[in-house]
Design a binder for these strands. Structure first.
Lengths: 339, 339
DNA sequence: TTTATTTACTTAACCGATTAAGTAACACGG
DNA sequence: CCGTGTTACTTAATCGGTTAAGTAAATAAA
């Protein structure tokens, strides 16, 4: 049983392939009667159009790419859900690319997009992605690109983010209200704008509360959980933090692990806040105070904006900037009372 | 700046497009010198081949599909990681399709694959997928398909699973050893073979320990967390289970939630075991005894087998059956001592 | 020296759908 | 009755690579 093509339908019905194609796309040039005959035969033979032939000719693939560092992370997983919900509604396909936080991989992936494989890209950059990423700047010129969460500020493009500085400020203030005087911010990257924003909010909160910012206030972590565990244990031991803000989900669990191994009690010895979307946060021992990010909404918003651009080329995509607020959910890993 | 095509390279070098194509694919028909010239110009002009033109002609897309119910689930997320690690190594692209446990969506997605969009499919079916799924049976005849975790036993195809019956048996035995006499198995589906296997192991364990299987022993849950919460609360209240086995990750957290709301203490009032890959399981309050599944390995194995079939059409894909063992990790949500 | 073989290309068909341009057939207004 | 439109198609080019088949020149074998 060969694959059914438009030509086979044409032969069977004694029509040209052009007529079939137009009938299937419901063109006004084709009579109602013919359309019905074509549709009936197509259904009977179970005709499924070849997407590649169509993409080649139309120069659009009805496919978008999602480029993220990691999928086993509640934030990104939920963001994918948000993206996919929009894509499925629009009949688009979603290609997922994982960078595993490697700038090299990211570059290679982006380069592939110059082929026209995808109509648009949703991306959250790696912790390594440098400011002047040529690949990104280039890509934005060629196809619609929307950054979400981890944006690259040097590149002019649509951005969907959370209020990172604010969130960090509030988290820090909450720790201070709970009595912390020596707070550590666990940062995932020196390059990432999102990290810098959070550091900014952190710094501002310290300043506003007359607390010093020392060179041990910000701890730069790696992408290796095992490495981070060691790093954290050393840092906790040496600097005797009374409060920690983990700016990624992975870091939050690593903090719990490190504290357990050092026999530090949360929140008595160290209070902890995590940036996270863990559904289990409330069941942790102790339950984790989190900066909860609207992952699904961000994915949804990013995809929605992208599809607007795909629909209308005059849509000013690059000017789109949305900041979706996160919320501080206070639980038992911190001491200050709910506000 | 137009897209660079093979024809442009050909004109610049005064060669035919055929020569360029062959040079780029390192054909023996082309002289070393010409190859170098082509490669050099391709690099200079930043030539990126159009994947759709190539797919159309070669009838292969270098793309595989992963069809799963949900991505915000540690098991599936980790499985994707395993799959992706193989795909990236082989230079393949990964399309992700989420069924959200809807059989209808699954059918629609599978139908699309008849277009030749993907070279192969990795699938974990929905809780609704009936035994006689015509779409699946059809698909397996057309392109390489590998089932992982949630297989469809009625369809002859490659399968990568865990030792579900065993795992459930051991989990049940562990609860019995801890003193449970009225154990509930929270099942995600009546259809799913994986659920039935687990139920089988559960039943066997009860029988072997002279415990009765009543019609409240197995609780069939839905896909709605809110619904399940109610269902569980009612069931816990009415049946006064002293042990529960949650056969999905989502159900495990729902159990914690329901117990909290009913003021039932785990493990004193109810002991709990979850099938899960939650990285936070050990930090839960209380830490969760889990049947931990080798998610990454299963994804890796499934993809590896699929690529073998893609490489060699004589590979007996349909006969491939791998059972990758899971392990029971005993923590504080159950009482029996470690074995 | 003649024939066979190899080398390094070119020509042209092809994958399957889309679409610009062309064409009969018929209707209609004047 | 003629010109203009409209309807419902067809023809053929096209998207950008791939590849079977062909060819000219150089080389090797007989």
């Amino acid at each position: 049983m060969e694959n059914v093509t438009i030509r086979m339908l044409a032969e069977r019905l004694q029509l040209s392939t052009a007529t079939i194609s137009k009938a299937l796309s419901n063109s006004h040039e084709i009579s109602e009667e013919t359309k019905q005959r074509v549709l009936a035969l197509a259904a009977e033979l179970n005709y499924v159009p070849n997407p590649y032939a169509s993409s080649l000719r139309k120069k659009s693939s009805h496919t978008i790419a999602v480029v993220i560092p990691e999928v086993a992370d509640s934030f990104f997983a939920e963001a994918i859900n948000g993206i996919e919900s929009v894509a499925q509604e629009k009949g688009y396909h979603v290609l997922i690319y994982l960078t595993h936080e490697s700038f090299g991989k990211e570059q290679a992936i982006l380069k592939d997009f110059q082929s026209g494989r995808v109509d648009g890209v949703l991306i959250s950059v790696t912790t390594e992605t440098a400011a002047a990423s040529h690949g990104l700047a280039q890509l934005v010129k060629e196809i619609p690109v929307v950054f979400f969460d981890r944006v690259c500020e040097e590149v002019t493009a649509a951005r969907i983010t959370t209020d990172d500085a604010n969130a960090a400020y509030n988290a820090t203030a909450h720790l201070i209200a709970g009595g912390c005087r020596n707070i550590g911010l666990l940062s995932a990257s020196r390059h990432l704008s999102i990290s810098n924003r959070r550091a900014e909010g952190f710094r501002q909160a310290l300043t506003d509360h007359q607390l010093p910012l020392t060179d041990t206030s910000i701890v730069y972590c790696s992408n290796e959980p095992a490495e981070n565990r060691q790093l954290l244990k050393t840092a906790l031991h040496q600097n005797r933090y009374d409060g920690l803000i983990a700016t990624t989900e992975k870091l939050a669990t690593t903090v719990y692990l490190a504290c357990e191994e050092l026999s530090l009690v949360i929140p008595d010895d160290v209070q902890v806040i995590g940036f996270s979307n863990l559904s289990t946060a409330r069941f942790l021992q102790p339950s984790l105070t989190t900066v909860s990010q609207p992952a699904f909404n961000m994915g949804h918003a990013a995809a929605t904006v992208l599809f607007k651009a795909l629909k209308s080329s005059s849509f000013p995509l690059q000017e789109q900037q949305q900041v979706i607020p996160s919320s501080l959910i206070i639980r038992n890993s911190t001491k200050a009372a709910d506000r």
